[in-house]
Amino acid sequence: MTSVTLKDIKKRFGGVDVIRGIDLHVEDGEFTVFVGPSGCGKSTLLRMISGLEDITSGTLAIGEQTMNEVSAAKRGVAMVFQSYALYPHLKVRENMGFGLKVRKLEKAEIARRVNEAAATLKIDDLLDRYPRELSGGQRQRVAIGRAIVGNPDVFLFDEPLSNLDAELRVHMRSELASLHRRLRTTMIYVTHDQIEAMTLADKIVVLNQGRIEQVGTPRELYTRPRNVFVAQFIGSPKMNILPVAGLQASSRFIEHLPEGASCIGMRPEHLTIVDASHGMLKGRLTLSEYTGAGSLLHVSLPDGTVCLVLQNGPSAPKIDDEVGIDISRDDMHYFDAEYRAIRAN
C-alpha cells in the first residue's frame, strides 16, 4: 500500500491553465474520489498521476518516490478507463494477462494471477471470450481484472461506471466498494456523479476550474461545505441558496443570522411544508414533481426566488396554494458576500 502526494501540481495546455496548483495527500489504502463539474480538471489530474499526461510544474510522489519523470508503466499504478479500453483482438484471458506478458513474467505466473483475479471478480467463465461478446458490466469487470493482476500500489479509475445503465451502476458501485475493502489498496476515483462520490469515498476532493474547493469526508462535505460551490455540488437536489437582502421571513428566522451572512443555504430534504401562517418563509407552490417516495416541490418566494422542498409521503399541497416553509436552525448554512461559509454560533 502506498500514499500519493501532490505538491503545487500545475498543468498548462497551450496557453490555458487546466490545473492551477493542487496540493493533496492521499493516505495508504484510502479511497479518494475526485469530483467536480465537466472541465474542472479531475480527469487531467488523474492522468497526470497515471503518467499519461506530463506535469507542467510541481511534484508528484507515489510512496516516497518522486514520479514526475517516471514512465506510466513504472509508476506502480493501474488505470481503469471509462470506455473499458479492452483490446478487441484479444480474449479476456489475454487482455488481463497482457501487461504481465509485456513485463515478461512466466506463463504459469500469468495464468495463476489471471485465474485468481477472475475468481475474485467472478468472471472465470468469461476468460475465453472476446470483449465484443461481453455485456457492459462484464467488460467493466474485465477492465478491473486487468488492473488487479498487476498488483499495483495505486488503482486509478476514470469514470468507470459512466457507460453503464443506472441499475448496473448501483451494483458495480457496491462491488467496487467491497473490492476496496478486500484489497485495501490506495484507490483514486474520478466521477462527476456526486452520489457515486458520497457512497464510495473515504475522502472526497471537490475540484472546480483546476483548483481544489474542499477536501473532506463525504459527511464533512455534506454538513460543513466550505463555500456555496461545494454546498450546491454535494447533495441532490442541490442546496437552495437564498440571498438575505430582500428576503421576507419571520423575525425568528432573521434574528439568528450570524454577522456578515449574505446568503442562506437550505437543503431541500431539510425543509418542511407547513401552514402559510407558521413557516419561517412563505411562498406559492408553482410546481410539484412526483418522485415516488415523495414530491419535489417548487415554491416561489415573494422576491421571485424558487425554493426547492423535498417532501416525503404521498400528500402534497395543490399548485398555487400559499404554503409556509420551515427548517431547523441546525440545518441552516450561512455564506458571506464572497460565498464562503460562515459558522453559526
Binding site: G51, L52, A73, M79, S83, A85, F98, V102, R103
Partner: peptide, 17 residues
Amino acid sequence: PKEIEEAATMDGLSRFG
C-alpha cells in the same frame, strides 16, 4: 480509440510496440 493505446502504455508497451 485513444484509450486503448493509453491502456497499452500503462501495460508497458513502447510506441513501436
